[in-house]
Write a protein that binds this DNA or RNA. Sequence first.
DNA 1: ACCGTTGCGATACACCGTATCGACCAATAC
DNA 2: GTATTGGTCGATACGGTGTATCGCAACGGT
Lengths: 228, 228
Amino acid sequence: MTVWDRPEPPARPLPLDRKRIVAAAVALADEGGLEAVSLRKVAARLDAGPMRLYRYISTKEELFDLMVDEVQAEILPAEPPGDWREALRGLAHGTRRAALRHEWLADLLGGRPTLGPNGLAVAEATLAALDGLADIDTALRAVETVSSYYIGAIRREIARLRAERATGLNEREWQRAFGPYVTKLLATGRFPALARMVHDGTHVTPETSFTTGLEWVLDAVAARFDRP
Amino acid sequence: MTVWDRPEPPARPLPLDRKRIVAAAVALADEGGLEAVSLRKVAARLDAGPMRLYRYISTKEELFDLMVDEVQAEILPAEPPGDWREALRGLAHGTRRAALRHEWLADLLGGRPTLGPNGLAVAEATLAALDGLADIDTALRAVETVSSYYIGAIRREIARLRAERATGLNEREWQRAFGPYVTKLLATGRFPALARMVHDGTHVTPETSFTTGLEWVLDAVAARFDRP
DNA sequence: ACCGTTGCGATACACCGTATCGACCAATAC
DNA sequence: GTATTGGTCGATACGGTGTATCGCAACGGT
C-alpha cells in the first residue's frame, strides 16, 4: 500500500485555550452583536463541538466575563498619565472608544463585577492615580462616581446609536424625525418641556455630550479634593 | 340529550390586553429575573398559547420595552417637587428604588431609548423642573449627566448585590472575603492601590455610596446653573 | 499484555422565539 | 336558510439554544 493510498492521519483538532475561544467569541460579537455569540457558533469557528468549550468555561456567562476582560486590556493607558484628572478622563474615553469598537460591550458594562486580571489592572491604574490626593474613602467615592457616569453615558449613547441605525440612518434628523409616534405625542401638548427641548435644542455630537458631562463630574470630584 | 350529557361550551379564554400581558411578564421577572420571562411562560400564566401574544406585541424586545415603561410609572413623583435639585434627586432615588423592587430593571436600564408614555412623562417631569434655570442646551446636558450617573450607579449596585448573593450572602465581609481568587491576586503585590483600598476602605452602605455620588453630580450641575 | 480509571466530547434533552398555514368564524350572495 | 367566501387567529412546527449525561477511547499501573 503506497503513501498515496494511505489516508492522512486524522487531523488532530487544533489545541484550544481560553485565548483562542475568547478571540473567536469577540469576533462573532463584533460582527453580529452579543446575540450572535452562541457556544455552538464559537465552537464551530474553532472546528470543535460545543461541549469541547466546557473544559475551559463552565457557563456562557463566564465566556462573557472573559470577553469583557479581554477588551479591558485595550483600555489601559499606554503611558502613565500626568495627573489624576487626565487619568480618569483617559479611562472614561478609553472605555467609550472600546464600546464603539465593540458595541456589545455596552450590553455588558456594569452588568457584573469585573474581577478579571485586566479589570483589576484598570481598577488599580485608576486608584493609583488618585493616591495621596484625598483620604481613601473619598478616592473610592470618586472612582465609583466617575465610573457610574461613563457606564451610564456609554450605554445611553450606544442605545441611541442603535435606535438611529434601526430607524434608518437619520442621524442628523433624529431629534426632529423621532418617528411619527413621538411627534404625535409631542403634538398633544402633554409634554411641553420635552417638545421645546426637541424643537429648540442644538444638535451636539455624542462625543461632545459625553465629554461635557464627564468634565462636569470631574469638576465635582476636583472640588472634593481641593476642600477635603 | 340531557344537560348532564351535554358538555359545557368551551370556556372562552380570558380576553387579553397589553396590560395583563405586561403584568404577567413583570410578575415572572420579579420572581425569577429577566431570563425567567419567556413568551411561553407569560402566555401560560394567561391560559393562552404562545402565539396568542403576537397580536399585542411583535417581538420579545417589545415586551421588555413595555415592562420598562410599566415600572417607570412608579418613578413619577407623587407631588410636584420644590426645586430642580429635589426633582432630579427624587427621580434618581425613585429609579433606584424601582430597580431594587424589580432587579431586572437594572438589566434593561439605558439599554434602549424609553419612548413609552411613562418614559416620556418622566423625561417631561425632569425637563420641566429645569425650566428657565439655564439655556436649553445646558439643561439637556444636565439631565443627560444625571441620568447617566444613576443608570450606571444602579447597574453597578445591582451587579454587586447579585455577586454577593451568589457567593453566599457575605454582605458585610464582601470587601475582605472577595473570594480566594482575588485575595490571592491582591497578595501578589501587583495591585497595591487596590489592595490598600480593600484593606483600609470603610464599608459604606450602597445607598450612602449612591447618594454621595449623586450629590456630587448635582453640585456640578448647580455650578453650571449659577455661572451660566 | 491486560485491565481499571479517567476525562473528553458526541448525543440527547428541554426549552426558546417566532414563521407558517390550516381551521375556524363572520359576513355575504343566492 | 344555506352555501360560499374572506380574513383572522393561534396551534403546530422549525431551527436554534445552553448544557446534563454517559459511552468510549486513551492512558497508566501492575
